[in-house]
Write a protein that binds this DNA or RNA. Structure first.
Length: 487
RNA sequence: GGCGAUAUCGUCUAAAGGUUAGGACGGAGCCCUCUCAAGGCUCAAAUCCGGGUUCGAGUCCCGGUAUCGCUACCA
């Protein structure tokens, strides 16, 4: 038996929605594992459910993965373009006797199941659905059904005795009694494969060595192992990762707020911060380290560090990670993200890429200690990039209430305007001298001035702020504030 | 209902039978301070319950409970 020396893994989303954080983490784990091992990461689109499929969603999923920095080495493959393979496999199983045609109607089936689901609590003992009777059909009966042209699905003839086992890299060795496994459908009457069939056929064909996927697939794995055996292929190593839950401990869904990675991108999260956060949800390096840049994640990642417990998605901690990256990223790494954010919000000016490059870098650096999201640069820090900003109501209420302010600010504007040199100490001195002469506290004037020139209470130290804004802006904004103050 | 998995601060986790059960987020407080952050320091906060095994159990075993998953011609 020859195996690829390097692992081959895959991420296989179905285009029934956007890329949600659970899928993103599964993709990330696969990718980290592949990169750590020097293996291959394959992308496969599982679009065999024509009812729920939304082909237009595929691009969004790819975009989400690209944003996350999870790059695939092969693919994307589409199952909808590989249907012949699944049919051939189903035929093969039919011929070998591992599968049989089933003439039960799909309508009957769902009806029966719904009844079981809705069973009254008083008499909740509804018998488990009986094994499919078609399995016992005589050859003659099958012949006649075939001649009638009756529609049929192909079901797997699950063994009635014995047990199936497999190895899970996270949950350990597993064994399931075959009697627990029903005669599941392989090929629908429409000729399209079910998940159980297509996933196994593809994983064999693509020579997948490790299947890393959500723990919701753990219970179905024995069926797939049975299929590997029936198709005479060695099963891969499985690694089921725990699920991501919402704050109420139910499976993460739209009800819990943003679950699409695209939304997090829009909100102003940095991909690397998001990656770091996601990697640590259900995986640990085995020690206290939390701030792990992507190269470190790759070198540290191991399936043995994957948790068995479902985890709750904690947005607050995600924001903390983001603020950490905002603080710690080398400024030249951060700048492109801020640029993109400003472009998105229509605040970007091309001069910041050229002659005012240094000014831009300095301003971003000044702002970033108090940012948590990239979008902060275009929201509360807007006044640093545009003259078009408003005055925050809370800031006005807090720092603009003193009756002497109109007079003080007018005088300050004049004093600053008269300054021969525009630097930190000159501004500082001018303001404090004025405050002293007028018998006002410097703090009063400083805080009121901050609101006047940037519209917020939240901003860098005042004189730093004055420097990056420049003299003419500061003076004109002070004068402009006089009108707002009067209003 | 059946089958299975899981269970350490509110949350994410560390502790490969022996620690005052550690760290981080969040919370509280202090320092710093021109605002807001950042940063530093301090505090509160956990082994689901009950039985075993062992000199010794968060760790191993059994039972209970809770939660989650599967039980589709969804994936």
């Amino acid at each position: 038996m020859t195996l690829d020396p390097k692992p081959r893994v895959r991420f296989a989303p179905s285009p029934t929605g956007y890329l949600h954080v659970g899928g993103a983490r599964t993709a990330l784990f696969n990718w980290l594992f592949a990169r750590h091992e020097g293996g291959t990461f394959i992308l496969r689109i599982e679009d065999t459910d024509v009812e729920r499929n939304r082909p237009e969603l595929v691009e969004g999923i790819l975009e989400g993965l690209r944003w996350l920095g999870v790059e695939w080495d092969e693919g994307p493959y589409f199952q909808s373009q590989r249907l012949e393979m699944y049919r051939a496999a189903a035929e093969k199983l039919l011929k070998s006797g591992a599968a049989f045609p089933c003439y039960c109607s799909a309508v009957q089936y769902t009806g029966a199941d719904a009844a079981v689901e809705e069973g009254e609590e008083g008499e909740g003992k509804v018998a488990r659905s009986a094994p499919c009777p078609c399995r016992e059909l005589t050859p003659a009966k099958r012949e006649s059904k075939m001649r009638e042209g009756a529609p049929y699905a192909i079901r797997f003839a699950a063994p009635r005795a014995g047990a199936t086992h497999f190895e899970d890299a996270v949950f350990g060795p597993r064994e399931v009694q075959n009697g627990e496994i029903e005669d599941f459908v392989l090929l629908r009457s429409s000729g399209l494969p079910t998940y159980q069939l297509s996933v196994v056929v593809d994983d064999i064909d693509m020579r997948i060595s490790h299947i890393i996927r959500g723990a919701d697939h753990l219970s179905n794995t024995p069926k797939q192992v049975l299929l590997y055996h029936a198709l005479a292929a060695p099963p891969p190593i499985f690694a089921h990762v725990p699920l991501i839950l919402g704050p109420d401990r139910t499976r993460l869904s739209k009800r819990h707020g943003a679950t699409s990675v695209g939304l997090y991108a829009q909100e102003g999260f940095l991909p690397e911060a998001f990656r770091n956060f996601l990697a640590l949800l259900g995986w640990s390096a085995g020690n206290d380290e939390e701030f792990l840049r992507t190269s470190e994640l790759i070198s540290r990642f191991s399936l043995s560090g994957v948790s068995r417990t479902n985890g709750i998605f904690d947005r607050t901690k995600l924001e903390w990670f983001n603020s950490q990256y905002l603080q710690k990223l080398p400024i030249e790494d951060l700048l492109p993200y801020v640029k993109a954010e400003l472009q998105r919000s229509g605040l970007w000016q091309s001069s910041w890429d050229n002659e005012q490059r240094e000014w831009f870098a300095h301003t971003v650096d000044l702002l970033r200690p108090r940012t948590r999201l990239l979008s902060d640069f275009s929201t509360w820090a807007r006044a640093f990039f545009s003259d078009d900003f408003d005055y925050d109501a809370d800031a006005r209420a807090k720092f603009w209430k003193d009756a002497k302010l109109p007079e003080l600010l007018a005088k300050l504007a004049d004093a600053l305007d008269a300054l021969p040199e525009w630097n930190h100490d000159a501004c500082d001195h001018a303001l404090r001298t004025l405050a002293a002469a007028e018998g006002a506290k410097a703090g009063l004037l400083i805080n009121a001035t901050r609101v006047a020139i940037v519209g917020r209470a939240v901003a860098p130290p005042l004189f730093e702020t004055m420097l990056v804004l420049g003299k003419s802006r500061v003076v004109s904004r002070l004068r402009r504030a006089l009108t707002a103050l009067a209003a």
